[in-house]
Design a protein around this nucleic acid. Structure first.
Lengths: 176, 176
DNA sequence: GCCTCCATGTAATTGGTTACATGATTCT
DNA sequence: AGAATCATGTAACCAATTACATGGAGGC
């Protein structure tokens, strides 16, 4: 077992596999797709982490399929570790925000360049917002998993809308 | 000179030193204070990065003061690199969001625990919001630097308010 | 004299990305 | 036959945190 501490990525993998058994390849595509705006991970980080979680008893690896495909499933010990993380610990990471960091230093460039920066930020936010809105328009959650997805989507809608409005307001502060 | 690529932290240091010359110790305290919600860095990362920036000609180190204090100032080459970063490149980091990642997996715990999670998120957001509001109440920007700070603060106000409202809404979705 | 804060640095480790490397299956 | 996709893994490197290590200056 040799239980080492589980990283955030490890917990993310447990969370995804709590839904259904998947391979490293499937998980990699999930990070590229659904989870793109939430967390990211490359296969080079995922495969070794799966090995570790299996070694420590949080996952079991089923029979190897075609093309060497390895499907992992969560164990009771893995479910318990996921639960413990979700209900007994809190997020404490100070989230780094590069958009805001740059905003801090915009006084050092011509007002015209600063304005262009915030206008571009607004455009990017409005594009993302349109994407979120089109998903939300046709999505009616029916399962607990789908409700959780809808809640995450709602965060995207609200925070991205706020970000777009902020960027617009900021651009106006640099008007000549 | 040996110009290597400058990291985001390197650009953050250039941005701070564009305001006024400072020591590594001063910069460390700035990351702990004003920049706490925007970017973080420990002295163990800052000191070697300052050496690198000085080696590559972006900074110059003035005379060593009391207790070995080393004050760095930005050079014309450093100012140009800061400008280039701000106006000719864009933020591309996919921001990781642990709060949202956990929300994704909340279907797997009892509704009561999920509700408690979002209620706690709301509390944390409202506390931060109150802090931002009290700063904003008495702050009237007079210099370009202060305007940039006010714009960053406005982001804090708007995004944190949206986060609090989202968390409240999410908690309601898990009502019995 | 002792405590706190100022001040700098390195070493060890973890987390994450890019690059390297290989091979099977399916589609055209 | 060739291309795209499925599928896994390792090595090298960069970014970031934690721990280790040292010493000066000022206040009590």
């Amino acid at each position: 077992m040799s239980s080492e501490a589980v990283s955030i990525l490890g917990h993310a993998l447990l969370g995804l596999l709590a839904g259904r058994p998947m391979s490293g390849y499937d998980l990699t595509r999930t990070f590229d797709g659904t989870l793109h705006f939430v967390w990211s991970a490359k296969h080079a980080q995922i495969y070794p982490e799966l090995s570790r979680l299996a070694r420590d008893g949080y996952l079991i690896q089923g029979a190897t399929g075609a093309r060497g495909r390895k499907v992992y499933a969560i164990t009771p010990s893995g479910s318990e570790e996921l639960r413990r993380w979700l209900v007994e610990t809190s997020p404490d990471r100070s989230p780094r925000n590069e958009v805001l960091l740059r905003a801090f230093f915009m006084w050092s460039v011509p007002a015209q360049d600063a304005r262009a920066y915030f206008e571009e930020r607004e455009r990017v936010a409005r594009d993302a917002l349109a994407q979120f809105e089109s998903i939300a328009a046709t999505f009616e959650p029916k399962t607990p998993e789908e409700l959780a997805f809808r809640i995450a989507l709602e965060s995207g809608l609200r925070l991205t809308r706020a970000a777009a409005e902020w960027a617009q307001w900021a651009a106006e502060q640099y008007r000549a």
